[in-house]
Simulated scan of single mutants.
Amino acid sequence: MRFVLDPEMTPELFEQLLHCWAEVTNADGAVGFVPPVTPDVIRPTAEKAFARTRSGGGPAAPDRLLAGFGDDGEVAAWLILADNDSLLRAHWRWVLRVMVHPKHQGRGYGRALLRAADDAARSIGLEALQLTCRGGTGVDAFYASAGYQEVGRVPRSIRLAPGDERDEIYMIRWL
């Protein structure tokens, strides 16, 4: 897989990222939506998210898109390194929307994506990466195996449906 920090946001790339997001959601990925979804449901959120990236919003945009492309040149995995809008916290970024297209899952692409995020963060002078994940999915164990440590959780703060609340788990990785 080939990783690119701040790839040019062409209409084709936008659609690939959007469709990946929908496919991940519909495969029960915890990336901000509850299945079933269509790309059109995600589109307004994606437009806002990508407008904040240098890929979609120009060189002054605060966030960074990291995209992984498979051998076929299509998006296989991606995430956003999001600015936290604070000079006091300029040494770290949030890791948002970590996803691997379902057809590529189980091949180590998720771990490769996190390693590429570490490398990208170091290349722009960062010292740490933070993320949140949805409790009850087991993904916190994956992040722990990649060097993230849990630093807190907010019980029942994510509501998937009435009566189905999950913890939001806060994790950090010092680089």
Score class of each variant (00 low, 15 high):
P62A: 15
A77Q: 03
V154I: 15
L131S: 06
S145G: 09
L81N: 00
A76S: 15
F3L: 04
E12N: 11
P39A: 10
P7D: 06
D72Y: 07
E150D: 09
G58N: 11
R97P: 00
P155Y: 06
R115T: 10
D167M: 08
L113V: 08
D167T: 09
H19T: 11
L81P: 00
Q130A: 13
E23H: 15
P36A: 08
V75C: 08
L96F: 12
Q105S: 02
V31D: 07
Y148P: 00
V154K: 13
G106A: 14
F69S: 07
A141F: 12
W174Q: 09
V75P: 02
G73E: 12
D140S: 13
A49H: 01
P7H: 09
A161L: 12
V100W: 00
F33G: 05
R97V: 13
S55E: 04
M99W: 05
P44N: 09
L5Y: 02
R52K: 15
R54F: 04
F14R: 08
E23V: 09
A46L: 10
A146D: 05
G106E: 03
E74P: 01
P35A: 14
D164P: 01
K48Y: 05
V31M: 12
E23L: 14
G125C: 04
R2L: 13
A60E: 14
Q149W: 14
A161H: 13
P36F: 08
G58D: 07
S86L: 09
A141I: 14
A60P: 01
A121Y: 01
Y148I: 00
V31F: 15
L88R: 11
I124G: 02
L113E: 03
D63R: 02
P59H: 05
L5K: 00
Q16E: 15
L13K: 02
A82K: 05
G135P: 02
V95F: 05
A128K: 10
D118W: 00
G110A: 10
D118P: 02
A90C: 13
L81C: 09
E23Q: 14
L129I: 07
A51W: 00
W92N: 06
F142A: 08
F142I: 05
G108T: 07
R43T: 05
F69V: 02
A112P: 03
T53P: 06
Q130R: 12
A82G: 11
